[in-house]
């Protein structure tokens, strides 16, 4: 059992507050992705769990044991670094076996575990090579194998795929997910890439300015963003927002059109994903500005009463800049946000 509990963790660097009162529980064997833009504190949080950084306040528990005062080696963790940190003076074999040697395991046990994990990562033919003789992707595999060889309770990954080219990243994404699922470890995975987060995670914690804005399953984060930031950060293109004025009794005026919405007397923001719009007889009047045929679909950037608005339409449609489209939002996909708190309104 390796449930991770992060309790009231905060971190300041001088006058700068990197993390504000973080509370997060990660289930045993769960794959948790910390997602956010650079500088949001996701790597700092990972490093606090790893023991490479000390929290200013708060506690970290792994498997029912408080570990924030322990050195990294006593926490039952292994880590994959962004730049791999594969030691250049050691062979692939000795790199994978580094942690096992530090634990003073007998030679045959080291050999068994190194060979097993190397096979798992398909690098068994590279064991005698040095890091300088490997490609970026192979180095990445060595870094993962080194972590897996430790048979850790928790595996921590800091943007492990960010230095790979796009095709290799896609391949490794799927492979890493499979390998980790089989290893029965709890994983924390830091990334700024939402596609990586969506495709790999059991749960995503979206971070912004040192806080966790939402922690939920990928589909929940996508469908029901808890805050405007999440709605704008996840999804490519991101969610559309339009100002909405109440006309009483759950009726709203959005972009000059009447809509049904929550009962509220305050001004709210109406939000809809670009792919949840259909051309229709009635709906929002949108003037097309830029039309981008993307093959699978058509991305149209429009103007709705002066606001930027994007629609993902069927690739069969013919739209020219200057055309006025009538777009009907799919009603069950419409979301509402409070502009004051930026939080979602039910």
């Amino acid at each position: 059992m390796a449930e991770i509990q992060i309790k009231n963790v905060a971190k300041t660097f001088g006058a700068y507050q990197a993390l504000h009162d973080i509370n997060l529980t990660i289930q045993d064997q769960e794959f948790m992705v910390l997602l956010g833009a650079s500088g949001c504190g996701k790597t700092t949080l990972l490093r606090i769990v790893a023991g490479l950084e000390t929290a200013t306040t708060g506690e970290v528990w792994i498997g029912g044991r408080r570990i924030d005062h322990l050195p990294p080696k006593d926490r039952g963790i292994a880590m994959v670094f962004q730049n791999y940190a594969v030691f250049p003076h050691l062979t692939v074999f000795e790199n994978i076996g580094f942690g096992l040697r530090m634990q003073k395991l007998p030679n045959d046990e080291v050999k068994r575990r190194v060979e097993r994990t190397a096979e798992l990562m398909h690098i068994e033919q590279l064991l005698k090579r040095y890091s300088g003789e490997l490609s970026g992707g192979q180095r990445q595999r060595v870094a993962v194998a080194r972590a897996l060889a430790m048979e850790p309770d928790v595996i921590l990954m800091d943007e492990p795929l960010s230095n790979l080219d796009a095709l290799l990243r896609m391949e490794m994404r799927a492979e890493l997910k499979g390998v980790l699922a089989e290893s029965n470890t709890t994983a924390i995975y830091v990334t700024h890439d939402q596609v990586e987060a969506m495709s790999m995670a059991d749960r995503i914690s979206v971070m912004h300015q040192g806080k966790i804005v939402q922690a939920a399953s990928p589909i929940e984060v996508y469908r029901n963003p808890a805050a405007e930031f999440v709605a704008g950060f996840i999804g490519n293109p991101p969610m559309n927002f339009l100002p909405a004025t109440p006309s009483g009794n759950g009726k709203w005026t959005v972009g000059g059109q009447d809509m049904n919405g929550p009962v509220s007397s305050e001004t709210l923001k109406f939000a809809i994903r670009p792919e949840d719009l259909r051309p229709s007889e009635t709906g929002l009047k949108a003037t097309a500005k830029v039309v981008e045929p993307l093959g699978a679909h058509l991305l149209v950037t429009c103007d709705v009463e002066g606001a930027l608005f994007r629609a993902v339409l069927d690739s069969d449609m013919t739209v020219k800049p200057g055309d006025v489209l009538t777009l009907a939002p799919q009603t069950d996909r419409v979301r509402w946000f409070n502009p004051e708190t930026t939080l979602a309104v039910a």
């Binding site: 080696k73 030691f87 530090m102």
Partner: peptide
Amino acid sequence: PKEYYEAAEVFGASPWKRFTRITLPL
């Protein structure tokens, strides 16, 4: 690079081991 020391620390190398296994060879 600092990352080598961090990797060594995470994988259980004591300060002395980090000196003999990372600093000296590199």
